[in-house]
Amino acid sequence: MDPVAVRPATEADLPAIAAIYNQGIRGRGATFETRERSPEELRGWLGRPEHPVLVAERGGRVLGWVAASGYRPRECYAGVAEFSVYVAEEARGQGVGDALMAAFLPACERAGLWKVLSRIFPENAASRALCRRHGFREVGVYRKHGKLEGVWRDVVIVERLLEANLT
C-alpha cells in the first residue's frame, strides 16, 4: 500500500472534501450537521493562513481532511482554533487520521495558534483515541450541548496546547 501524503488543501480538493464531510453528516456520528454541503459552500475554508486546511491522499486520491476554524471573535482568542478531522469510510483504520494530525499540529503552530480544540460525541471512540494519541486532553463533557434529530447529545471537549506559541 502506498504511503499517505498530507498537503495543504486546494480548490481542486473541495469536491473530495465535501464528499467525505457528507459521509460524516449522513453517518450522524461525528457532527450536529444534518444538511450535506457542496464544494462551493466549503470554498471559504481555504486561503486563511491562520486556519490551516490539509488533505491526506494516497495514489492521488483524497482520503481525509482536517481543518481549523475560528473559535470566538474576541481578540483574546485569536490564537485558539476549533478543528474537525474526517476520514473517508473506506480509508478508516489505515492511519489517515494519524497522518493528518501529525501534519496539522505543526501547521497550526506555524500559523501562530496556541491552542486547538474540538467537541466529540462520547461514543466516537475512534476520534477520541486519535486525539489522545496526538496529545489532546479531555477537558470535560458539555451535557445536552445540542439536539441531533430531536435527541439531546453530549459532547466531550478536547484541547491541545501548542507549547511553541505559549512563550
Rank of each mutant, 00 (worst) to 15 (best):
A16E: 02
G97I: 03
C131Y: 13
F83E: 02
G112R: 09
P49C: 01
E33G: 01
Y77Q: 12
R160M: 00
C108P: 07
E163K: 13
G59S: 08
N165G: 12
I120F: 03
N124F: 02
T10E: 14
G60C: 09
P73E: 09
R92P: 00
H145F: 12
G140D: 09
P8A: 12
F121V: 05
L166K: 13
P122A: 03
H51G: 00
E75A: 15
A78L: 14
A67D: 01
A99C: 05
G59A: 09
A129R: 15
W45E: 05
R110P: 04
R128E: 02
A107K: 02
Y142P: 00
V55A: 08
V141M: 11
R61L: 08
G47E: 04
N124C: 02
G95H: 11
K144V: 00
A81P: 06
R137N: 05
Y21P: 05
S84H: 07
T34D: 08
A88D: 15
E57Q: 13
A81G: 07
K147N: 06
E40R: 08
A164G: 13
P106G: 06
L166R: 15
R160L: 01
Q94V: 00
T10R: 15
V4K: 10
E57M: 05
P106W: 01
G59W: 06
R37N: 02
E163V: 15
A111G: 09
A18K: 05
A111E: 05
G44T: 05
G95Y: 09
S69A: 13
W114R: 14
A81K: 10
R128A: 13
N165F: 09
R153A: 09
A9L: 06
L166D: 10
M101E: 04
P73T: 06
P52N: 11
R128I: 11
L63D: 03
D2F: 00
I17K: 12
E33S: 11
P39C: 04
E75L: 14
L113Q: 07
D2R: 15
E90T: 11
A91R: 00
H51I: 01
R58F: 06
A126H: 10
E11H: 12
R48T: 12
A111Y: 03
E109S: 13
V156D: 06
F83S: 01
R61W: 01
L166N: 11
R119Y: 12
G70F: 01
E159G: 11
P106F: 01
E33R: 06
V66R: 06
G146E: 00
G140C: 13
V53P: 10
D13Y: 04
K144E: 15
A125E: 15
A16F: 01
V156A: 12
Y77K: 14
V139E: 15
F104K: 11
Y77V: 10
V155I: 14
V151Y: 03
A107D: 01
A30W: 04
A19Q: 12
E36S: 04
G60M: 09
I120E: 00
K144T: 04
G59V: 03
R110Q: 13
G112N: 07
G24M: 11
A103T: 02
D2H: 12
E163H: 13
V80T: 14
A99N: 08
R110N: 04
A103M: 01
E123F: 12
V151C: 07
V116Y: 07
G60H: 08
G29P: 00
H51S: 14
R133L: 09
R26N: 11
E50L: 11
A103W: 00
A129Y: 10
R132P: 03
